[in-house]
Write a protein that binds this DNA or RNA. Sequence first.
DNA 1: TATTTATGGTACTACTCAGTACCAAACGTC
DNA 2: GACGTTTGGTACTGAGTAGTACCATAAATA
Lengths: 213, 213
Amino acid sequence: MQDTKKIDPRTVKRREAIIATARELFCEHGLAGTTLEMITAEAGGSRRTIYELFGNKDGVFEAVIRDCTGRITSVMSDLEMSDLPLRAALIHYGETLMTLLTMPDTIRYMRLFLAEVPRFPKLGKVFYESGLMTGRRYIASYFERQMAEGNFPKGNPWQAAVFFSSLIKADYDIRQMSYIDWEPQEKDLRSHVIAAVDMFLRGHGLDPEKMTS
Amino acid sequence: MQDTKKIDPRTVKRREAIIATARELFCEHGLAGTTLEMITAEAGGSRRTIYELFGNKDGVFEAVIRDCTGRITSVMSDLEMSDLPLRAALIHYGETLMTLLTMPDTIRYMRLFLAEVPRFPKLGKVFYESGLMTGRRYIASYFERQMAEGNFPKGNPWQAAVFFSSLIKADYDIRQMSYIDWEPQEKDLRSHVIAAVDMFLRGHGLDPEKMTS
DNA sequence: TATTTATGGTACTACTCAGTACCAAACGTC
DNA sequence: GACGTTTGGTACTGAGTAGTACCATAAATA
């Protein structure tokens, strides 16, 4: 049951253009505040094409959310495993995670998606599990390895990942979603991450002072 | 320049009824998905009165958000200071905070408010600072006292409050906002809070095992 | 009880916007 | 280069809704 038809390259291109434009407009004006005409005006094309490709307005929204989810997922994949010593690795993770979470786009996507959760419950699952949880899975598997190698006290790697990312993100996410056009200072983020990592280490019986950093 | 006029009790009553109804409808259908007629149909009265009292639809929304903010603030005031021993007090705080944050209403208000932040930037400030920060201020002042009394290592009480509430809430807030009709099990919350408190204490050089609880 | 003020209800206006129909033109395929 | 598909543009429909005008009425105040 594979696609017997070839896909017209025009269709792919139009589709991408519409999603990209709609994403920006939705983020700025919300779903209800964006008309299909605003989308075509900026992306080119005509409403006709939108209905052809997405069925209706909600179809565009779904496609946009899936696109945003993919973007967040791929951006979370930047949390590559590191072979630095534990404390340095955690600081590196923390700073990367913080950078990703405080990116204006991440915040905008989250606002957009959270707003419409009640009317698109399935998208909530997709966004949370495929998008936001990606980073946590990386971190949990890191702790799992560190526990196996004896660098970190044995325990529940998933809980460690939860506490670690909670300490790192603190309430920067909610605060940024609450304030328009506010971004934390980079040096505040750095000192926050270091404080969080050290507290995390002490919380697991490790002494940050004694760790090669 | 005080109000020289007396306020007609009818006005107060109507105002309250409209806000209460609008709050529920906005939470359920969103701002754009709620018509003024839906509000009058349920709250009684006529659109005429709405325009008299709130100017326009946005005025109703502003009033609703301020009302929600007040509700969250007042609910946060349940975080009264406790004279239990440190660990028991933190567990008590943690459980109360968790109960408040995971209340379905809290989640609904946050979704509603976050959705419209881009178009009502001022409300973001009100909601975050007056509403959400209230709990944190209580906790920070608690740590300040404990530091002064020598029950807790001296340091920055505000940072302690940030880390404490971050560990407690973890990502329950985001997760609940992402999933409709999902609520964490109470016993999971309790064990989470205990784990978080103990990690917090160890993170500050205190041994939970040795503390009277 | 008389006066003032807020309210209810209805009808109306003006507008926006999702979704549809249609045809000609552009483009990809073979 | 001919054929078939996708697209652009425009115009139309129909539903829904914010906001207004007006008047009779109910309630508060004095």
